[in-house]
């Protein structure tokens, strides 16, 4: 991430250290992860210890220190999705992609994550793939979903 872009994000929040979470989320959104250099830069600019930024980066589900795949698959494991079989879908994806949640395929094509609830409970089980919701999923529909999303 360029210094200019980081400066823009810092200035967007008036270099206010209490806005650190908004800044981290903006970086995450742009880069799909939090580069170490960006955290060090923020630490220096805002006068916050790097330890604190690292703690935040590992505490929150939405922040990641490793780059994501080109296609991001989120499996909702909320209660409504769970009772409707989200587990089976997750297992199928793990098997299909040969990765565990939190990991990226070796070709960087897919990353797999679970999310506690997407708030689309009526559609359960739900997947969020590259920002698009797939409702009433079943293990049978996984192949076509992967096909479609990687096109």
């Amino acid at each position: 991430m360029k210094e200019k872009e980081l400066e823009n994000i810092i200035n967007k929040y008036r270099a206010d250290p209490t806005e650190i979470m908004n800044m981290l989320l903006d970086i995450q959104e742009k880069e799909k992860f939090l580069p170490k250099t960006a955290l060090s830069y923020l630490s220096g600019k805002l006068g916050l210890p790097l330890t604190r930024l690292y703690q935040m980066a590992t505490f929150y589900e939405a922040l990641s220190l490793t780059p994501s795949g080109r296609n991001q698959i989120h499996v909702c494991t909320g209660t409504a999705c769970h009772v409707r079989g989200a587990d089976g879908i997750l297992n199928k994806l793990e098997q299909k992609l040969s990765i565990k949640p939190g990991q990226v395929t070796p070709d960087q094509k897919f990353s797999l994550k679970t999310v506690n609830c997407l708030g689309a409970c009526a559609l359960g089980p739900v997947l969020l793939v590259n920002g698009e919701y797939y409702g009433h999923m079943s293990a049978l529909k996984i192949d076509s979903m992967l096909q479609r999303s990687s096109e």
């Binding site: 210890p49 690292y54 703690q55």
Partner: peptide
């Protein structure tokens, strides 16, 4: 010195230096 911190949460919570690398501070 702010060399180490708690990282992760829940059952995974642990103490480590930033990025689990050498504690430069």
């Amino acid at each position: 010195a702010h060399a180490i911190t708690f990282a992760h949460r829940g059952a995974q919570r642990m103490v480590e230096p930033p990025f689990a690398e050498e504690a430069e501070n």
